[in-house]
Each structure stands twice: as structure tokens, then as C-alpha cells.
Design a protein around this nucleic acid. Structure first.
Lengths: 161, 161
DNA sequence: TCTGAAAGATCAGGTTT
DNA sequence: AAACCTGATCTTTCAGA
């Protein structure tokens, strides 16, 4: 589909702008990075095609959606399990916001978001029922302190249009 | 600044569209939710003003940015520490992608992203130096299995325009 | 020097805001 | 009505034959 993923400095600056505001116009981006709008569009299209950009999304206040309960779940499996097997077992559980295999005693750490404690309990039960889980250990989130996008860059508060 | 945050079903459907693609036009959103473009714009503006929408952002492949090393860090503090104090102590450490106080033995769980193991080590040292941390326990991520936005809705792969 | 690929600028038309 | 998106076309640069 497309070649390797080589980002020059202009690409990174475009990503910085788009990370702060995914709805920035090509003109706005161009005036920051010093390019014309069509030139910016070509680069953005290329970043999308090369999968460097995974998508454009909106950060919604979880409280506004009624998703107020959250937990970190450490999962311990029986025997050796391939990461791909775990990914396939869990990808259909929408309450799982992130999952990763880790070093240490646990095999994987999941982050689970639910509407209330009952909902959370059902989600964790479903996780434990999924293949080769021996046991799990959950801690419930009390306060969210920091929540960023993962590039050291946060979305910026939208301005009035 | 603005009234309370009351979302009707149309608002939620607008948020669903914008979560899947933050660059959707008002027309596209309108054709999904059955509203005219100006009507959609008024609602989106209201959602932004009421802070139900925190921002629009772009999901970048971390590997493309060279941020390939990641860890979960459990932090144990001495004595009782207010969440706001922790938030203030850590907000200036950009490697921290998320942080939350939790139930259980640990006081907080952080997720830290860095460019390599050395960078990760320096970030963790900085965290441990920040006020009232007694000790910490880190596990390093081996494979990322799932990564979603946190509303049970993922951004969708952008289409060619 | 010539040629082709890559990257940017300008412009026009249809669309979105 | 004004701003924006986007395809078409033209220019520049640069590497390799």
C-alpha cells in the first residue's frame, strides 16, 4: 500500500498541530509550518496512508457520557499464552480501553471503563471467563489525575469558530 | 460560562460520529443524525462550550514518533496525600500519559511512555523524586494489545478523500 | 545536459461553514 | 457571503544516466 514511515521535521510539526486540534484547517496548519494548504493536505494524506496517523478523534468528558467507573485489572494466565491470542480474546469486550502484556508476575494489564460498579463487575467477569485466565487482580480508580493523548501533547481547548 | 451538561440522544449520536472521526463535516454528521448542518454546528458549539467535548485530537502511531517504550508504574506514598497534590506534582512530567489514584496497596497507578529504556528510567526517577513518594513498582509493556479512546468507541480508519 | 521523480505554489470549481 | 477543500496544472529542485 505504501512505503516505510519516514517522518521529516515538517511532518512532526503537522502532527503536533493536528494532535492539539484535529479539526484545524489545512490553511491553519500551513500557516504554522510554512506551507500552502494543498501541500499540507498532501502530507496529511500521506501520513494517513502510511498509518502514521491512526485516526482523528474527539475527547469527550467521561462524566458527560455517564462512564464514571474505572479499574486497572492485572491478569494472570495459566501456562504460556501468545499476545495475539489475548488480543483476539479481548477485542470484543468494549469496556476494555487498553490492554498490554507486561513484565513481572502478571501476564497483562487492562484498563476497564464502565458506567457503574455493577457494569464493571460484569465486564471483569467476562474477562476472567475468556480463555486461559487463571486469576485477576483489580484496583478501582478513585481520582483521575492526568489524561493525555500519548505523545506528550494534549488536545487544546477548542476556540469558538 | 454555560449551563449544566444535559445531553439528549441526538447529542450522544453526534459525539459518536465525532469520536469516530473528529474531522467529519457538519453535513456528514447531520446526514447521520438527521439534522441540517447549521443545526449540528449549533449543537457541537454547545457541547464544546459546556465542556462535554474536551478537544479534538489525532491518534498517532507511537512507533512513528519513536516512542516505543512504555511502563505501568505503581506508586506508594508516605502518609496521606491529597489527589490534587499528586496531580500538581506530576503534571509537568510529559512522559506521564495517564495517572490515577486507586484502591489497594498502591496509592496511584501511572502510565509512562518514553523513547527508550534510558529515557523511561529517567522519567521514573523524576517521578520518585517528586514529593512524598515512598517507593514504586514498575512493569514494562511487552506488547500493546488494545488501545481505544475510552468511550467504547474507537476512531475509524480515515478514508481517502 | 537531459530526464524523471518529488515537493511546493497557484488557481478554479464546488462544498462547507 | 466568506472560508474551505481539492483536483489540475505549472515551477523548482535534485539525482542519476
Amino acid at each position: 500500500m505504501s512505503g516505510p514511515m519516514v517522518l521529516d521535521e515538517t511532518d512532526e510539526r503537522i502532527l503536533t498541530v493536528l494532535t492539539r486540534n484535529a479539526r484545524a484547517t489545512f490553511n491553519e496548519i500551513g500557516s504554522v509550518v510554512g506551507l500552502s494548504a494543498p501541500a499540507v493536505k498532501r502530507r496529511v494524506d500521506r501520513l494517513v496512508a502510511s498509518k502514521a496517523i491512526r485516526g482523528f478523534t474527539t475527547v469527550v468528558d467521561p462524566a458527560a457520557m455517564g462512564w464514571t467507573t474505572e479499574a486497572y485489572v492485572s491478569v494472570f494466565c495459566t501456562g504460556v499464552v501468545a499476545p495475539e491470542v489475548l488480543a483476539r480474546a479481548w477485542e470484543d469486550i468494549p469496556e476494555i480501553v487498553s490492554a498490554a502484556t507486561v513484565t513481572g508476575a502478571a501476564d497483562a494489564v487492562l484498563r476497564v471503563v464502565a458506567s457503574d460498579v455493577g457494569h464493571l463487575e460484569r465486564a471483569i467477569e467476562r474477562i476472567r471467563r475468556s480463555g486461559s485466565v487463571d486469576h485477576s487482580d483489580s484496583v478501582i480508580v478513585l481520582s483521575r489525575l492526568i489524561e493525555r493523548t500519548g505523545n506528550g501533547r494534549e488536545p487544546v481547548e477548542p476556540q469558538d469558530s
